[in-house]
Simulated scan of single mutants.
Amino acid sequence: MSIPIELIELVEKYEGFRAQAYQDITGIWTCGYGFTGPDITADTSMTLIEARTELSSRLELIWSAITQKAHSTLSQNELIALSDFAYNLGLNALFTSHLWALLQLSEKQAASEQFPLWCHAGGKQVQGLLIRRLAEQKIFMTE
């Protein structure tokens, strides 16, 4: 499977690359392009090439999961926006969201209005997340 370069560039833009692990705003160890999980610890480091390879693998899994679970065919831009959303927040967050429920009812406009609501971390609104959600919303609504 080949995911669009636009998706990779979108994630790279908003995640940024960090070769050394750091704790994100909520204290979660993070490395590369926002990678988290049990394998990411304070000692984790990676090269740009390793991070890009891992990013492509993760995005392919997300893209595939979304296309398989959708009740209707999604446009490339819808998939890009939803994949970036799921990359940042997790597939579970997407699939259990009101955004997803509305989309499955073919309520695209109402679904798009949900993006900006997902801009909190650690119980606080984060400007960077709001900017990212608005970018996803714009892509989602672009024909």
Rank of each mutant, 00 (worst) to 15 (best):
M1A: 14
P4E: 12
P4W: 13
I5F: 10
I5K: 15
I5E: 13
I8N: 04
L10H: 13
L10C: 10
V11N: 07
V11W: 06
E12W: 06
E12Y: 07
K13V: 07
K13W: 07
Y14E: 00
E15S: 07
G16F: 05
F17R: 08
F17T: 04
F17D: 08
A19E: 15
A19P: 11
Q20G: 05
Y22D: 12
Y22W: 10
D24N: 08
D24V: 01
I28L: 05
T30H: 02
T30M: 02
C31F: 07
G32H: 09
Y33C: 11
Y33D: 04
G34F: 05
G34H: 04
F35I: 11
F35S: 09
T36D: 04
G37H: 04
P38T: 11
P38Y: 05
P38V: 10
T41W: 05
T44R: 09
S45M: 13
M46G: 00
M46R: 02
M46H: 07
M46T: 08
T47N: 06
T47I: 08
L48D: 06
I49Q: 13
I49D: 15
I49H: 13
E50H: 07
E50F: 10
E50Y: 08
R52V: 01
T53M: 09
T53H: 10
E54S: 08
S56P: 06
S57W: 04
R58A: 11
I62Q: 01
I62N: 00
W63H: 10
W63F: 14
S64M: 12
A65V: 08
I66G: 00
I66L: 02
I66F: 00
T67H: 03
K69S: 15
H71I: 12
S72F: 02
S72D: 03
T73Q: 12
T73F: 04
L74W: 00
S75W: 02
Q76D: 12
Q76E: 15
N77T: 08
L79C: 14
I80T: 09
I80R: 01
A81M: 15
A81S: 15
L82V: 03
S83T: 04
S83R: 00
D84Y: 04
D84L: 03
F85S: 09
F85V: 01
F85I: 01
A86H: 09
A86I: 04
Y87K: 06
Y87W: 09
L89S: 11
G90Y: 03
L91W: 02
N92Q: 03
A93Q: 09
F95M: 12
T96Y: 12
T96I: 03
T96H: 11
T96M: 08
S97P: 00
S97W: 00
S97E: 04
H98N: 14
L99F: 02
L102C: 10
L102W: 02
L103D: 03
Q104E: 13
Q104A: 07
L105I: 04
S106M: 11
K108Q: 09
Q109F: 14
Q109N: 13
Q109P: 02
E113V: 06
Q114S: 06
Q114I: 01
P116D: 02
L117K: 10
L117G: 12
H120K: 15
H120L: 14
A121N: 09
G123L: 07
V126D: 12
G128P: 08
G128E: 11
L130I: 02
I131H: 14
I131M: 13
I131N: 15
R133V: 04
E136M: 13
Q137S: 10
K138C: 05
I139M: 00
F140A: 01
M141Y: 00
T142E: 10
